[in-house]
Design a protein around this nucleic acid. Structure first.
Lengths: 166, 166
DNA sequence: TTATATTTTCAATATTTATTGAAAATATAA
DNA sequence: TTATATTTTCAATAAATATTGAAAATATAA
């Protein structure tokens, strides 16, 4: 396998993974392309390599910048914007987790707090309360763990993982 | 808030969370409905409560059974099948993780192995190899951790979480 | 066995989500 | 300033995904 085939395969796979995770496939592909590119790429480069329109390229590049996964890189003498991906895998993971926590876990916790205060008695109410409580308890633990993870550096995480594996 | 409002809110929120996770929204809603129901429900009950068609109900119930999140419950004297949800939150989490690992992490690991063997030299090749290696290293660690998690009981998980929080 | 209830399938349809590309806005060079 | 390159927006369109419900298959009761 040569480098071009390798890149293509990676972009494809990263795009599929993105889809599975509820992330726009093209956004994941743009991310993949920038990840494996040694040099900064312009919107035009991305359009050409992924065969997508200018609007699509623009929107997904901006989404990646919002997520903190891609940075603008100004090249002196060049009129176009260029882009580079954050390559530190630990940083990438933390940023993705932070985004998803904010979008998914935080709203769910809010809902759970609301519905944990329902009134009434009987089997249905007991079952409901019990399920909600269990999910709440898990959500809170996950929240703490993720919050800590987002604030940690990789060495802490790795040593924790090693202990965890014992 | 009364029980019916509570259930509705929960079903809604669980469905949205499902969408974010690349899971069919209706599948997540059927799961939510069965989770908070004290009694087994028939396909008809589910159709009526979620206002979905028989085909839709059938397909999503079966998907949930495939995931191990829902069981068939035969009620003597009843001709219809009834369904109950697994209510043990730890068991639910493990089953979801197992499914997603199989569908997402395992194929990604395979691709990474393939593309880590590319030929060539130069900056582009070095960048590519380095990114792929980082992802591979992370994937392997995640794989070990998830594999262990799937095989563990909740008490191990909780004590690990507590250590992790220190 | 036959009659009926229930479940399953899947082509047609609806809905949701992503993409395009022209036009508008903005930035840069001269 | 004007001319031109580049970026951004967003309505129209395309593509992907989910849903319906009639027909077929299967299961149960009598």
């Amino acid at each position: 396998m040569n480098i071009e085939e390798g890149k293509q395969t990676f972009i494809q796979a990263w795009g599929t993974l993105g889809s599975d995770w509820g992330v726009n496939r093209t956004m994941a592909q743009v991310h993949a392309l920038l990840l494996v590119s040694a040099k900064p790429l312009s919107a035009k480069d991305i359009m050409d390599q992924l065969k997508i329109s200018i609007g699509n390229a623009n929107m997904n590049i901006r989404a990646l910048i919002d997520w903190g996964l891609v940075y603008k890189k100004i090249i002196p003498g060049e009129r176009k914007d260029y882009f580079i991906a954050e390559k530190d895998m630990w940083d990438i993971i933390k940023k993705i987790i932070a985004q998803r926590k904010k979008k998914e876990l935080d709203p769910m916790k809010k809902v759970l707090t609301q519905i944990s205060e329902i009134e009434g008695e009987g089997e249905e109410v007991e079952t409901f309360k019990s399920v909600v409580q269990d999910i709440q308890s898990f959500s809170n633990k996950a929240d703490n763990a993720l919050e800590k993870l987002i604030r940690s550096d990789e060495s802490w995480f790795l040593s924790t993982l090693i202990k965890l594996m014992k």
